[in-house]
Design a protein around this nucleic acid. Sequence first.
DNA 1: CGCCAATGGTTATATTGTAACATTTAGATT
DNA 2: AATCTAAATGTTACAATATAACCATTGGCG
Lengths: 157, 157
Amino acid sequence: MAAERTTARRHDHHHCVQQALVSAEGLCADNGRRLTALRRRVLREVWRGHDAVKAYDILERLGDAERAAKPPTVYRALQFLQEQGLVHRLESLNAFVGCAEPHRSHQGQFLICRQCGAVHEIHVPQIATAVNRLAQQEGFKVERQMVEVLGTCQRCR
Amino acid sequence: MAAERTTARRHDHHHCVQQALVSAEGLCADNGRRLTALRRRVLREVWRGHDAVKAYDILERLGDAERAAKPPTVYRALQFLQEQGLVHRLESLNAFVGCAEPHRSHQGQFLICRQCGAVHEIHVPQIATAVNRLAQQEGFKVERQMVEVLGTCQRCR
DNA sequence: CGCCAATGGTTATATTGTAACATTTAGATT
DNA sequence: AATCTAAATGTTACAATATAACCATTGGCG
């Protein structure tokens, strides 16, 4: 159930999901890309809670009893969603999480709880700034920044 | 050959490797851990250059013609080396890189060139500071920070 | 309608990583 | 030195993650 996966404090998770879907519709429309049924379906699964979701978990939930979904189906949808900024990939977990603010440009900074799996996207501009400054010194052209902080969230302590 | 893998500008890479091995010996001695032949061998392979090395690449180079090495052999050695702080795992690449300063405590911050694969470990205390401050606000206990910056290095531009 | 580019299905396989148990080895102890 | 033991390594088997390549379908367009 969604209840056991939603994290942090209690909240109306249905609202989160709706928000994400509406956001996604808008964003895809703006970009002239199609948010197909499959992609919406996958996005929904990613938004099952606020923790990271594995590709193969989505896969399982996608298939009917008779015919199971195949990996490329999910990976393609996930790639699309990533390109649109609708989901982030958490490299340290090999998993995915929905982006709550796909409009805002950001780099992907996360607090990840080892205990409960909650993923909290953060926005610390100082990090990006410091990275960019150093990169500039080094003559390095930044394309993507990933910041993943593993630890224990407030609730789990 | 090592030459084609060493990155950034020309340098005496043999010196890097020696440095790393000496460092490793000292560190293990201090910690009362054994730097066995196998572990040294793996560390050497990780230090083949300054780019990230994949576990299965090490694996191939480990085995004799007759009997190939098996995955757990490499993964165990890598885990040991990570625990000692002698190598870092690059989550975004599923690969490993030697740590040039295993004594200094740090969080693992890297500039990774997509072109040539060069991995440049950086030390930007402002990042750790900013992360820690935010984590504190959130009541989040930090255990590990990962910062991986993908882009293009000076040479490749 | 008929075309075509985008999307999704399917098969097969590559890559990455681990569990579980057996064997060997290095160092401590007698 | 012989013996013991914990650490290290070997081995088998498999789990988990991901992609290549090719085919079928579909949705929008002239």
